[in-house]
Amino acid sequence: MKRGIVGVVACAASVALSVPALAVDFSGYGAVRVGTYWTQNQYYSATAGASYGARRSDSDFSLDLMGDSLVGVRVKEGDFSAVAEMGAFNPKAASSGPEVRLLFGEWDFGKGKIRVGKAPSPYVYRTQMTWDSDGGMNAYGSLWDGRYAQIKLTMNNGFYFTLMQPRAGAGSVYTSNAAGAGSSLAAFSETANTYATTYTNYNTIMPKIVTGYEGKLSNWTYGGGVSYNLYNLERVTAANATPIKTDIHSYLVFFHGKVDVAPVEFSYNLFTGRNLGDLMSSAASAYVATSATFSTTGTASYYDVTNDANAYTYGGWGQIGYTVNPKLKIYAGASYVSDDNRKTRADERFAAFVNAHYQVSKNFKIVPEIGYMNDMTNTLGNKEPRTLEAGAKWEMSF
């Protein structure tokens, strides 16, 4: 038994000693985050036959591991580097368990880099808001839409060009058959394989394209760009009827940046686009628990099949930060976003927060916070949920 242990140790030592010879550098990192939040939700009745606007409320306290708790490793060998990162869970689908947050390799060819793998979209730019697993105003003026497979070329002069996994339909995944058990939220499928009296078929045509520029001028760091996606929607509304085909074009134009005039900094994010739900996840987050009869949130940014109308979106956020001392920073921000298909009422959302980032020690940080999210009104003109949150994030990182 002892000989076996000695052998294992000797083997491990041999591998460790060989790493420098191979000139491969490994480094690990991670963060464990727990959120303690009290939330007060208000939602409004929109059930058929009831008077619209009747208010209901729900109050809860939570102490839970935040979904962006993670552990990762970086590897570098010459002009090649790679990142692999595992997260605790997807905060919008905790039951699915741990998830691969990042997994990509990069080749530095001198004038730029080529990245292949899974990473956030280039237009992602979020606030310092911590609630909802460091949500950063997701769906309330930020442009977070998850992490997707991509091929990205970044030049040393700041320009980049990205081909990404395409998106189509009214969900993050889609199907070719909307009959029976099939729907736009069912399992991924690119080819129709079931004939039905009525069905909807999504035909992907090309990758999503994102191109832009990131630069710096004195104390101003800034960026901006455009994104485009195209897919074909084919619908059959009756037995043996001629399919109705529609090309769905979606685009995004975005600008973001930060002006740092220590101890004060100002950050911003502005965007506009068409059919953003078909380009990225721009619908309201799912953390406000409401019955489908109470809300139609989450549909207004997609191409409207019923009204045969494109959805137009504009929004953004602004944030001010103040460094009190090396251990304490204070942030405050507000945001607004509106989705409008120009045939129904606009779906609007607003959010605001203030928090303090206190670095207790090198590896330990506490962030007390107060925030407010107001989903305002939906496309029917009905009031939607309002959420007040107060609590703190507890983070230990390495």
Rank of each mutant, 00 (worst) to 15 (best):
E77Q: 04
S81G: 01
S57I: 08
A54E: 04
G67R: 05
S62F: 04
A50N: 15
G49Q: 00
K76A: 02
G87H: 04
D64Q: 01
F61S: 14
G87L: 05
D60T: 11
A54W: 08
G78M: 04
L70P: 07
G72P: 04
E85L: 08
F61C: 10
E77R: 03
A50Y: 15
L65K: 06
G49I: 08
L65Y: 06
V73Y: 13
D68E: 12
D64N: 04
K76P: 00
F80T: 00
E85C: 14
G72A: 11
V73C: 03
G78A: 10
E77T: 11
A50Q: 10
R56H: 15
D68A: 03
S81K: 05
K76H: 01
S59V: 10
V73N: 08
G78I: 06
V71C: 11
R55W: 10
S69Y: 10
A48D: 09
S51L: 14
D79M: 12
A84C: 11
R55G: 02
Y52L: 07
D68L: 14
D64T: 00
E85K: 12
S69Q: 12
S69A: 12
D58Y: 03
G78Q: 00
A84R: 00
A84N: 06
F61H: 11
R55L: 12
Y52W: 11
G53W: 00
V75S: 05
V73R: 02
E77A: 08
A50G: 09
S51P: 01
G49W: 02
E77S: 09
V83A: 02
S59H: 05
A82D: 05
S62V: 13
K76N: 01
D58P: 03
R56F: 15
G87R: 09
A48W: 02
M66K: 03
K76L: 00
S62G: 10
G53I: 12
V83R: 00
G67C: 14
A84M: 04
G49M: 00
A50E: 15
V75E: 04
A84I: 07
R74I: 06
G67W: 12
G67E: 15
R74S: 11
L63I: 06
V71M: 15
S59W: 00
D79N: 14
F80R: 01
L63P: 13
R55H: 08
S57L: 06
L63K: 13
D58S: 13
G67H: 10
S57R: 12
R56P: 05
S81I: 07
S57A: 07
G49H: 02
R74V: 06
M86E: 01
D79Q: 10
L63A: 15
L70C: 14
F80V: 05
S69L: 14
G49T: 05
V83M: 02
F80I: 03
E85V: 15
A50V: 12
S59T: 11
D79V: 11
G72W: 00
D79L: 12
G72V: 04
R55K: 13
A82C: 07
V75T: 15
K76S: 03
V71E: 07
G78H: 05
R56A: 14
R56E: 14
F80S: 02
D58V: 10
L65T: 09
L65I: 03
A82L: 02
G67I: 14
G53M: 04
G78V: 11
D64E: 07
A50S: 12
D68M: 10
D79G: 07
L65E: 08
S57M: 03
